[in-house]
């Protein structure tokens, strides 16, 4: 009975299998990027960039309708522009980075919604804002998987410089010229994965699959490789859980997936060793030194 509830939806329906494949690809690509976003204290920056993708994708939509290629290219270009512009504003004006990010993200989302409504129907707007993980066609699935594959390869190549750039950038600049490569390469990865997440989960939810599993994993484990692995696992389980909830309770899949990740996060926040109760629940006696 339970097994049937868990497996039958995927066995019986192709759109569920496609959604599952999409979630796996996102978990493998976007979530590790999210771990680094979290550790670099750039979670909000990721959120702002996700919103920035909206007007770009909307322009693609305005020109070509619901075309995968146009919306992807538009999203990538807009995301990269805002990533660079936010840093520039923070460096060359008296505004702090959080203020400039908030400004960018409000403007982006207003512009994006305006552009979509110039031409579209409400259904299209919902598609852009919340994605369509249950309606992934071959091309979208290929795009998400390709981005995921490229991300894993790039992270493997950038791993050591990126880790150093995160915790001791001054040292990295002293020993190597790879600091800007790590920094900007990472921003490109963020944008690419936000665009991948955008197709499945929409601009408003794409960051969720990056940050929530990463934050939950951070509360449980201390070492970075373990954190990466656990975050991917949490993201995938949230994907499966969200899809099943969506199937059985007839609720939208994208928000269900993010809420599933949110439940894991809240439970971790309460119970994990790094969480609110974790240290107090540890009743083992203290050591001698």
């Amino acid at each position: 009975m339970i097994a049937e509830a868990l497996f039958a939806p995927f066995a019986d329906f192709e759109f569920m299998r496609r959604a599952l494949a999409g979630c796996l690809a996102l978990a493998l690509g976007a979530t590790p990027v999210g771990v680094f976003l979290l550790l670099r204290r750039m979670s909000l920056m990721g959120d702002a960039m996700a919103h920035a993708i909206l007007p770009g994708a909307a322009l693609g939509y305005l020109a070509f309708g619901l075309s995968l290629g146009a919306m992807t290219v538009g999203g990538i270009v807009a995301g990269l522009v805002v990533a660079l512009a936010a840093g520039l504003v923070a460096r060359s004006s008296i505004l702090k980075e959080d203020a400039s990010l908030a400004a960018f993200y409000l403007l982006s989302i207003a512009t994006g919604v305006m552009i979509v409504s110039l031409r579209g129907r409400n259904l299209d707007l919902l598609h852009v804002l919340f994605g369509s993980v249950l309606a992934l066609d071959d091309a979208s699935l290929l795009l998400i998987s390709a981005i995921s594959t490229a991300t894993l390869a790039a992270l493997a190549l950038l791993y050591r410089p990126l880790v150093l750039e995160c915790f001791d950038a001054a040292f990295l600049r002293g020993v190597s010229a790879s600091s800007p490569i790590a920094h900007y390469g990472f921003l490109v990865l963020v944008v690419l994965n936000l665009v991948a997440g955008f197709h499945a989960l929409g601009t408003l939810m794409a960051v969720g699959i990056m940050i929530l599993p990463s934050a939950a994993a951070r509360l449980w484990v201390k070492r970075l490789p373990a954190m990466l692995g656990l975050a991917v696992l949490i993201a995938f389980i949230s994907g499966v859980g969200g899809l099943l909830a969506s199937f059985h309770a007839d609720v939208p899949a994208g928000p269900a997936i993010i809420l599933a990740a949110g439940i894991v996060y809240v439970l971790s926040l309460i119970l994990a060793p790094g969480g609110m109760l974790g240290a107090r629940l540890d009743r083992r006696p203290h050591l001698e030194s």
Binding site: L164, F167, D168, A169, V175, S176, R218, R223, L224, M227
Partner: peptide
Amino acid sequence: ELDRSFPVSVFDMVSMGLW
């Protein structure tokens, strides 16, 4: 200038001197 909250071990950090 060093972010001490980053999860990295003493051995890994020191070994970066061999960059």
